[in-house]
Amino acid sequence: MTADQDREDVHRVLEGDISSFGNIVRRWQNPLVNLAFRFCRDRQRSEEMAQDAFMQIFRNLEKFRGEAAFSTWIFSVSLNVYRSALRRKSLPVKSIDDLMDLAAGQIPYLQIEQQERDELIRQAVALLPKRYRDAIIVFYFREMNLTETAAILRVSEGTAKAWLHRGREMLRNKLERRSTTTAAAKEVRP
């Protein structure tokens, strides 16, 4: 249903009815803002990034040939916009280690609430090397659909799978090393 509406609206926009693009924005604003948020972890910035993504979608609408699903195409275009936005202005924290140091300066890693620790891990994903970051964010955002993730990333399923595995591994190693270090420090200074 949504796919048909999207195609119809794309057709209308290409025929000159610009206001039909408003329907596309209304339908996709939530997913695009949320996808941007997972990259930047900043509410205001995620809206700016999503707005840039919509502009890029509008400019490239005629390139949508309907071979892939509209959702795949729209996420793929947005992903490129978000990557560029993060290249132009990187996140305030540069690495997972810096992020953990910053958090540890406030509350020791092992003592923080579950919810805060989860949030810290989500922030850490945004600081992974680009290909692993993109793979993990898109995969979990698209409800663990590997085929769609690979299509959005424009790589083979095998490559997407390898990036996901490597990204998760990297994240787990960093977090485990950090929790071990924090626990050891706690033992030394009770």
């Binding site: 939530n30 949320n34 509410r43 995620s46 809206e47 999503a50 993990i136 663990m144």
Partner: peptide
Amino acid sequence: ILFTEKQIEP
């Protein structure tokens, strides 16, 4: 943790 992410409203 990665799958359960809070949704934000534009």
